[in-house]
Design a protein around this nucleic acid. Sequence first.
DNA 1: ACCTGAACACCGTTCAAGT
DNA 2: ACCTGAACACCGTTCAAGT
Lengths: 210, 210
Amino acid sequence: MPGLARSRTPQRKPRGDYHHGNLRAAMIDSAVMLIATSDEGSFTLREAARRIGVDHRAAYRHFADRGALLAAVADDGFAHLIEAIKLQLGSLGAGAPRRLLGFAQAYVRFAVAEPARYRVMTSPRANNGRSRPADVADAGFALLQHEIASGIARGELHEIDVTEAAIALWSTMHGLADLIVMRRIVVRRDLLASYVDRIIARSLEGLVKG
Amino acid sequence: MPGLARSRTPQRKPRGDYHHGNLRAAMIDSAVMLIATSDEGSFTLREAARRIGVDHRAAYRHFADRGALLAAVADDGFAHLIEAIKLQLGSLGAGAPRRLLGFAQAYVRFAVAEPARYRVMTSPRANNGRSRPADVADAGFALLQHEIASGIARGELHEIDVTEAAIALWSTMHGLADLIVMRRIVVRRDLLASYVDRIIARSLEGLVKG
DNA sequence: ACCTGAACACCGTTCAAGT
DNA sequence: ACCTGAACACCGTTCAAGT
């Protein structure tokens, strides 16, 4: 994101650049940065536009309203999350317990690394918009179900209800990530991985055969 | 809460009632009701005051700012939650697995019954206020730790790390409640209890002896 | 198509003053 | 002590117009 502006300073008023190139993506990035330093509640569409040297009115060409911008931030975030999980899974080979642990590691790591994004992704504002199908988030859940189903097919996991097991795991991952991101519990960075391992391993104990 | 006002209508302007009795509690109730029908982000201090027929400026006598009001709503909510959990535990007798299941049931039931309160309680706005010690929330966590420690002392649970086990359980309860409240998953009311039982039971499997 | 000045109704917060 | 009118800077959103 080139040319950040100190708030308030109009900066490079108009030149000839009436077209921003990719205002949509720029607004999303600007919003994420803003939310990272303040929080979602006090995030402002006007300020996000100001930071990239654009009139706030321009944003309405790409987003129906403030909520739509936030929803776009959330979708974008889920895309990043899923990418991170897939990257992790790709490096793991077979073995359901290890893969599910890796899934959870990638999930929590993302939340801790990008708390601003994560908060928006899981906040009501981005969720209860009836206007939005939330399929990007669902893709992540489907991925988890797929991993569990594969584990069962390979005979590594008990024949439990896939959806139920996925919800149990997702609840634990999300709950843990949320507690950390909201600073209800504090975990040292270098201990995070082993910590997640132990917590998630507990949730897996009921699933794994032998 | 007597005498709700249709928004916008000033209603019973001044009479002789310059003193509201308990403006603090009335504002908290009004805020909860408002958040229940809209959401935290669009909740407005001015509207909350309007609803109880009071000038918004009056609220500043009891709350430093909007955030402090929200924090008070959160604290109030945690007090309710802990009360509900204690009530449930009181009806249960000994037996750690059953008691922990009951704990989780009461927790999730509260979140589902009072989604507005729960959202505020677990939202960043009420959490990252450096001004607030959040000890009310911590009391709930301490209660869970106590239950686990008792179970270990009675020889019903493995000798696991109490804090770690508490975080694992809290993560799952909170994660599940959050997914339901945020409508990421939908659970029929009459199936909620058995649903929570199965999900939480999975998390307990690693803890319970025998 | 994409961008913007001016304007509207609304907010949180503060001051100075009422009882 | 508790409450309020007037005012400030700010917001989201819309209109009508620029290139």
